[in-house]
Amino acid sequence: MREPTLPDPAALDRVPVREGYDGADYYALMTRALHQILLEQGLLAPEDTDRVIAALEAPRPEWGARLVARAWVDPAFKARLLADGSAAAAELGFTIKEARLVAVENTADLHNLIVCTLCSCYPRSLLGQPPWWYISKAYRARAVREPRAVLKEFGVDLPDSVRVRVHDSNADMRYLVLPRRPEGTDGADEADLARFVTRDSMIGTAHADIRAGLAKPA
């Protein structure tokens, strides 16, 4: 068996993108200090923080998947979703708090990819917190510069006949990719279809996948 090769530490200093930044420890420490002072002064109760964290962690990809599955079975809903994502989400009981939701549709000749080059804008109140790589500087820099190479690394190898459209989520909109409905799902109902919709397929780094739905939720 081959020993794994570790990169030369000197070479790491030459990589074009370095994750994190030198001030991160400082701000983490300041946040903890401020939190402690607020607790000591009785301005904040521990459960207040827990409640906010719970609210932040409540949204999850399955919420977005419900929008996608509804769009696949209901053309009128799909039209409303593409015209006004926030209003369509509200129809299913989801409030997009941070911004307006824009849904972009993948077709046979168009593939959409979402990135936030400036920070980590993401439809958090619908899909939850973004995956770690979405926040990485490498993804943010490369998704706009060489989207096809990035997609290929995610396993999405597109021929030149499929146009790639990158959406840099830099301001007041948040984006949801409406992936293509997988082949061979004509008989599936809306709840089954929703299980084929992965988080990554709503970012554009994957296709909706019939294999994702094989494991029935407990």
């Binding site: 824009v102 060489e146 096809r148 190479a149 030149d160 790639v164 459209r165 989520s169 830099n170 909109m173």
Partner: peptide, 24 residues
């Protein structure tokens, strides 16, 4: 939302000529 051609953004862009980027 402004749509730009990738080849206008990056002179050496390697993808299809019709690839685009949209930004607010």
């Amino acid at each position: 939302r402004v749509r730009l051609d990738q080849r206008d953004l990056w002179p050496d862009y390697a993808g299809a000529a019709e690839d685009t980027l949209e930004i607010e």
